[in-house]
């Protein structure tokens, strides 16, 4: 048959089609191209996702801004005035509130992106079943929305940090798009992996909500890696090297202009300085991107190797 050369010929043979994970891994190099080629579709889905969320509310997109502002105000009140003492500078203060805030918005973006991607194939069941279109693009707009929400939060963070003089963003702020790209790739990888699993077992979303909660507490969102004191502190410090979210989170914080976190604590009447360094941006970027690429390859290969079954299962 000479079908290969003619335009718009679609052939499929169940005998020669290969649905192994390894065979689906190679086309991952074409994935960015695929996203670019369908940018208009992605754009439309992005709009639908972003506007659809606020359609019908009177404040509309403004909610994206209201949420982080109120969240920061609460943190500031709780940690600056309830747990800390702004006069003596002992205990958590507004610096801690900012540290916490920057961690929470970054991790929430990751969590949101994955959670929404997880159910995307099933949620768009009528499209998967009735319209022949590339379902591997479905998580992309969802993750882009989570990044937009993050960027708004990051702007709030920057604004407050600059006002207090806590954050000193330098040229590294220009690397924010790089950090966002890494976060995008990592979220996409995990999202594709879970989206595939969710098609076969609807337990996946519950599993993820528990796992992500555990992950959040095991990642330095609320606490400082260098201020660990427990009996297993040393081994936990070792384990950071294997937490994909750790380099990503620290990279986010450094890019926003935080070099170190001042934190002091009263131990037996003596004020102990627990100021800790956030590490080197270069290291964090390297490790985060390696993790991200690994997740993407795994997620993409698994997703694509099972994609032919989705229409029958959703």
């Amino acid at each position: 048959m000479t079908s290969g050369s003619a335009p718009f010929v679609k052939t499929y043979s169940a005998e020669t089609a290969r649905h192994t994970v390894l065979a689906s891994l190679v086309p991952v190099v074409r994935y960015p191209l695929e996203i670019w080629r369908h940018r208009y579709l992605v754009h439309n889905f992005f709009r639908r996702e972003l506007l659809g969320r606020f359609r019908g509310s009177s404040l509309g997109l403004f909610w994206v801004l209201v949420h982080p502002i109120v969240m920061f105000a609460v943190y500031y009140l709780v940690f600056g005035y309830l747990f800390g003492n702004p006069k003596t500078g002992v205990g958590p203060g507004r610096e801690y509130a900012l540290y916490l805030f920057s961690g929470v918005i970054a991790f929430t973006a990751l969590n949101e992106g994955v959670t929404r991607s997880c159910t995307c194939v099933v949620d768009n069941g009528n499209l998967v079943k009735k319209v022949a279109f590339p379902s591997e693009l479905l998580p992309v707009p969802l993750i882009l929305v989570s990044l937009v929400v993050y960027v708004v939060g990051a702007l709030v963070c920057l604004g407050v940090g600059l006002a207090y003089g806590v954050l000193a963003p330098g040229w590294s702020l220009l690397l924010l798009p790089v950090v966002l790209l890494i976060q995008f790739v990592m979220t996409l990888g995990i999202g594709l992996f879970l989206a595939n699993a969710y098609v076969f077992a609807r337990d996946t979303s519950h599993l993820w909500s528990i796992a992500s909660m555990a992950w959040m507490f095991l990642t330095p969102v609320f606490w400082f890696p260098h201020a660990l004191e427990g009996p297993i502190a040393e081994s936990i410090k070792q384990a950071f090297a294997w937490n994909p979210a750790y380099p990503l989170l620290q990279a986010h914080r450094i890019v926003l202009g935080a070099q170190s976190v001042k934190y002091s604590k009263e131990v037996d009447g003596v004020t102990k300085d627990l100021t800790s360094d956030l590490g080197y941006l270069g290291d964090h970027l390297l490790y985060a991107s390696l993790w991200a690429l690994g997740f993407l390859c795994l997620g993409y290969a698994v997703f694509m190797s099972r994609r032919h079954k989705y229409a029958d299962l959703v």
Binding site: K10, T11, Y12, S13, A14, E15, T16, A17, V128, K129, K130, V131, A132, H308, K309, A311, D312
Partner: peptide
Amino acid sequence: GTTFPTAGR
């Protein structure tokens, strides 16, 4: 092209 055959082409 929304679903795929088990056998044949």
